[in-house]
Design a protein around this nucleic acid. Structure first.
Lengths: 231, 231
DNA sequence: CGATTTTCTGACCATTCGGTCAGGATGCTT
DNA sequence: AAGCATCCTGACCGAATGGTCAGAAAATCG
């Protein structure tokens, strides 16, 4: 009925490997499981504090198998960081001076909020890396990301010159948005503890997003280009 | 000249134990040194990732001595958390509905910013604890801190009713302020990497504080009670 | 079916972990 | 000086760490 199974083997039910199973299905599933488990463990305990044993248990595989797939702890960690940076870069589409500041800033806040929402473990992993002095991400911070920030900053400045928003320091503004949105992933335990919730609902997230958008846009004196004098 | 010294002993210069040295001077110095070193190491690597060996080395003492003073890794960690909570509580003075919202919020932002500034390692230690799910601080979050937040929230609401500020959700506002200020300690590596600085100067911190105060107060429509109709 | 390649894992290794402890070093009191 | 209490630390312990590897188990191919 259950197909071939290695008799006594592990006490836990690996269950999944039903019948024949074509080509790399198991491989892909295992890799996905390992990456997910590793993201959780690294996020919770940091690089040094995470153990392959814990990752393997969460993935439901023997430790040796994790190493078979990933090669080394360091390699696994770097791979997770790279995956997270890809997700991050995906929402860093370019903008132009001609765009509407209100729309751009709202989209910025909203997409960043959703990144934290959709990948809370990844967000926390990133946070733990930065918290520890960003030993693996120095290059990225001082290169790619820095350029991206400065490009946006220049556009914000031009908007200010055209009177579309207050002349605030654009870099501090970007940090403000990053911190406010990142907070709901990284400090989730605090948010839940203080608000007495079990989890943040979609409605909560929407409410927070609206709140942040309103306060930050108003705080920077952003005036929608499409004449909306209803202050 | 240098007084009694245990001949060959450690290769590193423990140097400090000059002459006689009254009562508990060494004790106090060592404890301080250990706590400072532990704060650094725990902040950087989290609870699990920190090793007593690393703490001992940073403190310039043998590992056994650290355990002699602190009893256990867990005890040391808890003690650091408690110290940080005391610092935190120190700036949680009570406020009244009669106070001026602008003044209170600015003082709030400013004091929180200075806490991050003066105790960056402590701030990061706290962040790492929350990131890991706040295993040691659940009680504090769901009790003391929650009460404090809700007390303040009620006052913000009353201010809103009196037309002294916009009717924004006060809890989200508190989180906004916490995240924005905490950011400069926790994500210091990112801030420095992107801005290309070696460190944040006092002037930088003052500039950021002013920026945050202006944007957040304006964003919440805070109107100073002491008639200041200059928009 | 047998042969070969790929996938997997238990046993093992050196190192490090938090913690214990006997006993040496030091300081204080008399 | 002697006695005593406190302070300190090297040696050690069992457990856990990341990683290796020989060989079992499966999948693939002829």
């Amino acid at each position: 009925m259950t197909g071939p199974m290695t008799e006594g083997s592990a006490p836990a039910e690996r269950g999944a490997r039903e019948q024949g199973e074509a080509n790399g299905v198991t491989r892909r599933r295992n890799e996905r499981e390992i990456l997910a488990a590793a993201e959780r463990v690294f996020a919770r305990h940091g690089y040094r504090g995470a153990s392959l044993q814990a990752i393997a248990e969460q993935a439901g595989l023997p430790k040796s198998n994790v190493l078979y797939y990933m090669g080394s702890k360091r390699g696994l960690y770097v791979r997770l960081l790279e995956r997270m940076m890809e997700r991050w870069n995906a929402l860093l589409d370019d903008i132009s001076v001609e765009d509407d500041p209100a729309e751009v800033l709202e989209a910025f806040i909203r997409s960043k909020m959703q990144l934290s929402r959709r990948h809370p473990e990844g967000s926390r992993l990133f946070a733990a890396e930065i918290l520890g002095g960003a030993p693996f991400l120095q290059e990225y911070l001082r290169g790619e990301l820095r350029d991206w920030v400065q490009a946006r900053a220049r556009i914000f400045e031009q908007w200010a010159e055209r009177g579309l928003m207050d002349p605030v320091d654009p870099v501090w503004l970007i940090f403000l948005i990053w911190s406010a949105t990142q907070h709901y992933a990284d400090f989730e335990a605090q948010v839940l503890g203080i608000t007495g919730r079990d989890a943040l609902s979609d409605a909560d997230v929407e409410e927070i997003t609206t709140f942040l958008t309103r306060v930050i846009l108003k705080g920077c004196g952003v005036r929608s280009r499409d004449a909306d004098p209803a202050r």
